[in-house]
Nucleic acid binder design. Structure first.
Length: 424
RNA sequence: GUGAACGUAGCUCAGGUGGUAGAGCACUGGGUUGUGGCCCCAGCGGUCGCGGGUUCAAGUCCCGUCGUUCACCCCA
């Protein structure tokens, strides 16, 4: 026997029994996205590596140590998509979508790849639902994007969610804040861990990610970005909050919310679930007004979010939301003898040709075994064919709920299942 | 990359201080010769993650390795 292989670390199979709930989440999401005017886009599973190093940012963990990068046979450096925004932005530019009426509102559902060590709600291949709106810098669209995500969570029945909101400022005001923060960090260097002191030079905003208690305490006194916003950013931030209120969305201001992509400007947000544990972020995003330009397109503002399907599913499970019942065969065909098997096979073909769901035994099971299969398949009817039916050209139709049986001519048997209105 | 726990039939798990494996579920057949759901009986199914070591003897002890889970980090 050959060695049994398993799915690669951090990946998993989505088995038939897992499909209904997952399909339900995805279809609900698509319905919500379309209701808000977003259209689906699919981009390739891999892109040129430069798209991510330029778009997501060289200083991010994603680019520095989490990408599945390989050289193709043509010597080009390619990377399995680690996030959704940069590829969609690339498509926006490549297809000249800036000539369309703005904003251009897109959504996606696809797999993302990151080389991380797996744990609860964290995988090397995971799936995200996301939306991106390009071309408008109106604060209303920030609020709409957050509203879309809130609507999705609400309609899925997710509980225990908290929205955290922040503003990252823009290229006008952030540099000034950055140096102010850097100044504070070097002044109080003794209060911070070694890593934070390093961060102070590379990207001072990242110190807010630090979990060391003493660092967090010391940061309490640090200057806050929301207090250093330029007037335009401050006005934008204020208007976003007004528009959230209009939608009845509550949030908590979190000046330490610095997300993992370098491209964020102004609005950043994240929905956190109390049901999830360490990976509490269910979904999040923000505004990225400099991204399109950074990857070679015309200066174009944008805002979007990504939300992880695994985390939604995890939170749903912990909210007690159960899977919708899967569609089952309506008719299960049972052959009472070896001779009847041929007839049953032909009959199955006829039934299926008429659009009726049918299934039958291919394991030469005993009659009892076939009936058992019929029962477990969830079929409403068993079509039973034996010597007598064979001779008469009939089929015994057994209602598996009531146990009632009647013998009908073959042609009539099928119409019974079609005309009889039954919820399957 | 770091730390901890775990790794026995398809699944969930038993297997005190070492003596060459069990249960439940699932699957297949049968319970008087053409019929399911409950019940009963039987059967199928494991080189105890993998590789070393200690021992007369290891699923059971030691080391390594891979994997899973949880946490750090980061994020979805």
């Amino acid at each position: 026997m050959a060695e049994v292989l398993s799915a690669p670390k951090g990946t998993y199979d989505i088995l038939p029994e897992d499909q209904p709930l997952r399909r339900w989440v995805i279809s609900r999401a698509e319905e919500v996205f379309q209701r808000y005017g977003y259209s689906r886009i699919d981009t390739p599973m891999f892109e040129e590596t430069r798209l991510f190093s330029r778009g997501v940012g060289e200083s991010t963990d994603i680019v520095r140590k989490e990408m599945y990068t390989f050289t193709d046979l043509g010597g080009r450096s390619m990377t399995l998509r680690p996030e959704g925004t940069a590829p969609v932005a690339r498509a926006y530019v490549e297809h000249g979508m800036h000539t369309l009426p703005q904003p251009v509102k897109l959504y996606y559902h696809c797999a993302m790849f990151r080389y991380e060590s797996p744990q609860s709600g964290r995988y090397r291949q995971h799936y995200q639902l996301g939306v991106e709106a390009f071309g408008s810098e109106a604060p209303e669209i920030d609020a709409e994007v957050i509203g879309v995500l809130a609507a999705l969570y609400r309609e899925l029945g997710l509980e225990g969610l908290e929205l955290r909101l922040n503003s990252m400022g823009c290229r006008e005001c952030r540099p000034a804040y950055g140096s102010a923060l850097r100044g504070f960090l070097t002044e109080h260097a003794g209060d911070f861990c070694g890593e934070c002191v390093e961060r102070a030079h590379l990207n001072p905003l990242r110190t807010f990610d630090c979990k060391v208690p003493t660092c967090r305490a010391a940061l309490e006194a640090a200057p806050r970005l929301t207090e250093h916003l330029c007037s335009a950013c401050a006005a934008h931030h204020a208007r976003v909050q007004e528009c959230l209120a209009v939608q009845g969305i509550s949030f908590g201001a979190d000046h330490t919310l610095v997300r993992g992509m370098d491209y964020y400007t102004r609005t950043t947000f994240e929905f956190q679930s109390s049901l999830l544990g360490a990976q509490s972020g269910v979904g999040g995003g923000g505004r990225y007004d400099d991204l399109v330009e950074a990857i070679g397109g015309p200066p174009t503002p944008g805002v979007g979010f990504g939300t992880g399907i695994e985390r939604i599913l995890l939170a749903l499970a912990r909210s007690g939301v159960t899977s919708p019942t899967p569609r089952r065969p309506l008719v299960y065909l049972v052959a009472l003898s070896a001779e009847a098997r041929g007839e049953v096979f032909a009959l199955a073909h006829d039934i299926r040709s008429q659009g009726v769901v049918a299934d039958l035994d291919y394991m030469t099971r005993s009659v009892k075994g076939q009936m058992k299969q019929a029962n477990r398949s969830g079929a409403r009817y068993a079509f039973i064919v034996g010597e007598q039916e064979l001779a008469e050209g009939t089929v015994t139709v057994r209602d598996l709920m009531s146990g009632e049986e009647k013998c009908l001519p073959k042609t009539e048997a099928v119409t019974v299942t079609i005309t009889d209105p039954i919820d399957v």
